[in-house]
């Protein structure tokens, strides 16, 4: 799809009320089993952030707001209404920023192990530096069960290049200030639609406490913690993830 002059990859599946799904730094998730299940109830619209999955990063893109405005335009272009906005990790950051700007086309907002704010003091590492942790540590912080982590050694050349390209795009959108916008907490009061946080209990990237701190910044927001899941509960506990999301959506 052409949007803002950019060739934007948008996966669409299922039917029902619209669900705009924004993936995290590990790349698109629309092909995963949890998404297939959600497609039974929703029309899923899942754009690929430019730069991920071997798409091009537009020359003028260099911060999270570039995605925020891109997807506000996407909502307009598709004339989506009463949309359930779901964001994972950095996609949650994008979603939260969007909701502070306008909720006109949104019904609800679900944030899954989302980054975007700072909850601690300036010396606290609220968000693990995933761009600096050794490869073998990444599995431990991302997953409750580290064996879920794809083994880079088993990947084809092309798959590994996609991993490194995704990492580059993640860097472009989140490098500094790292994974958060210091101004966001002061704007979250503008989010007047229902907001629900879904969090993997064993997340080593952003802890449950971080999630609770983030949740407390949005009036009326609620939270479900999923046991035996890390940063990606939709992968590790897809059934419970879908259950939590559907409970919120209804």
């Amino acid at each position: 799809m052409k949007l803002q002059g950019i060739d934007l990859d948008v996966a669409r599946m299922g039917s029902g009320p619209p669900l705009l799904m924004l993936h995290g730094g590990d790349g698109p998730v629309a092909g995963m089993p949890f998404a297939t299940r959600l497609a039974e109830k929703f029309e899923i619209i899942a754009p690929v952030h430019p730069g991920f999955a071997r798409t091009r990063i537009p020359d003028h893109f260099d911060c999270i707001n570039d995605l925020v405005y891109l997807y506000l335009d996407l909502l307009d272009k598709l004339d989506l209404r009463e949309t359930l906005l779901v964001g994972f990790s950095m996609g949650g950051w994008v979603a939260a920023e969007m909701a502070t700007m306008t909720t006109e086309r949104l019904s609800r907002l679900a944030l899954v192990n989302s980054v975007g704010v700072k909850v601690g003091g300036r010396d606290d590492r609220d968000i693990a530096d995933v761009l600096a942790v050794p490869g073998e540590r990444l599995a431990e912080i991302m997953f409750h069960d580290p064996s879920m982590m794809p083994d880079f050694a088993d990947m084809s050349e092309e798959q590994l290049e996609t991993v490194t390209a995704n990492r580059m795009a993640l860097g472009v959108y989140t490098w500094d200030p790292y994974m958060h916008n210091p101004k966001l907490p002061g704007r979250l009061h503008r989010v007047t639609i229902p907001v629900h946080f879904i969090w993997g209990a064993s997340d080593g990237v952003v802890s449950v406490d971080y999630g609770r701190g983030f949740c407390a910044m949005i009036p009326g927001a609620t939270m479900t913690v999923i046991e035996k899941a890390g940063h990606v509960p939709h992968m590790e506990q897809p059934d419970r993830f879908v259950e939590a999301l559907l409970a919120f959506a209804n």
Binding site: A132, F152, R167, W175
Partner: peptide
């Protein structure tokens, strides 16, 4: 350590992949 040799965006994805390997 590998992570310091391979910060995001320094190398093109094919070179970054080779460094990872």
């Amino acid at each position: 350590a590998e992570q310091w040799q391979n910060p995001p965006g320094y190398h093109s994805p094919p070179i970054a992949a080779a460094v990872m390997r």
